[in-house]
């Protein structure tokens, strides 16, 4: 399958369109769009590993958490750090960097840990690899939730600079899109895809499946970490629970519902689930319809979201895009 440039162009235009809606809309729309674009960064990150290798990972939320906290240690104002995290190492307490430098530190930190656990994960295949990532997620969650001096433990860490808006999120989403696209059509991506379809045949053809999976794992961990950094600096607060099973579930659902075998699937799944989720939030928040007061119903939004997911899966078991990419019809397009 050859890279199809129109796919990258179409998806970039979709991202820009979403960002434009955010830029023109009121503050509420703006926040919704920013949140959606951040989720898109995360889901594209997931697709780099899961989509190409076919191995499900439950562990990537940990990289979002590690990236977010890693960046926050350096971007928080020194005063806020001394107040909330007085036990940080002295050199961290004394420094304050901007978002770019902080994000770089967070991403490097998360990727290093991704490399370490990745070495273990890629040696396993199928469900054993998935369970190892799940175990990793629990490990990191337990450590972060109890490392009071680094994370404030089970209470929230506040005071992160609010540096991320729709613009920053859109730029990062475009970067993530480009990374995912170029990786997928790189020799490494194509060889991984071969191993996804038939691992034994790929090995027999001389493809170093484990090593390539490790590359994908670290790269996807880095992109997901970027998503975590963005989320922290968008909300201005971090809590360990923010990056646990619900985060894992929602982002994986976006990927699978869109169709995990294509980048277009990751994008469309994210946009669909995020949009539906927001619309439902409005619905479940209560209010008055036609003069009748409707009380807020906690849980209603999640119930409806789950039902919609089940219906989509039922109608399209291999995802909305079914493994296809959005592309212009062209004589140059190679048939799949």
């Amino acid at each position: 399958m050859r890279a199809h440039w129109s796919t990258l162009v179409i998806l970039s235009l979709i991202v820009l369109l979403v960002a434009a809606i955010g830029a023109l809309g009121n503050p509420v729309v703006q926040r919704v769009v920013t949140d959606m674009l951040i989720k898109l960064v995360v889901v594209l990150g997931l697709s780099i590993f899961i989509g190409n290798s076919g191995v499900l990972s439950f562990g990537h939320a940990s990289f979002a958490a590690l990236g977010a906290y890693g960046a926050a240690w350096f971007t928080m104002p020194i005063v806020a750090k001394k107040l909330f995290l007085p036990k940080l190492p002295a050199f961290v307490l004394a420094t304050q960097y901007g978002l770019t430098a902080g994000a770089t530190i967070g991403i490097v930190f998360a990727s290093t840990l991704a490399l370490i656990v990745g070495i273990a994960v890629v040696r396993l295949s199928g469900i054993a690899a998935s369970i190892a990532t799940l175990a990793w997620l629990v490990i990191i969650n337990t450590i972060l939730a109890n490392a009071d001096s680094l994370t404030k433990g089970s209470s929230s860490l506040v005071g992160l600079p609010l540096d991320v808006g729709a613009g920053t999120a859109a730029i990062c989403a475009l970067i993530a899109l480009a990374v995912a696209f170029f990786f997928k059509y790189s020799p490494i991506g194509l060889m991984l895809e071969a191993s996804r379809e038939d691992e034994a045949a790929a090995l027999a053809a001389g493809i170093a499946v484990h090593r390539l999976r490790l590359v994908a794992f670290v790269l996807s961990g880095a992109v997901v970490a970027l998503g975590g950094v963005l989320q922290g600096h968008f909300l201005g607060m971090l809590s360990v629970g923010q990056f646990y099973l619900e985060f894992t579930f929602l982002t994986l659902a976006m990927l699978v519902i869109g169709g995990m075998r294509s980048i277009s699937g990751a994008v469309m799944g994210t946009l669909l689930i995020a949009t539906v989720g927001e619309l439902l939030r409005v619905g479940a928040g209560g209010g008055t319809v036609g003069g009748i007061a409707i009380p807020p119903m906690p849980g209603m939004r999640e119930i409806a979201l789950a039902l919609i997911m089940l219906f989509v899966l039922r109608a399209r078991p291999s995802g909305l895009m079914g493994g296809h990419e959005l592309a212009l019809p062209s004589r140059l397009a190679s048939p799949k």
Binding site: L56, V256, G299
Partner: peptide, 27 residues
């Protein structure tokens, strides 16, 4: 309905059921 789909789809379906039931209890 999704029995013959790949394991990822089944997994997300089970996640969705779990989410549904858990939030049903919250409601």
């Amino acid at each position: 309905p999704v029995r013959n789909a790949d394991p990822a789809t089944l997994l997300i379906a089970s996640f969705a059921v779990s989410y549904f039931l858990q939030n049903g209890l919250v409601l």
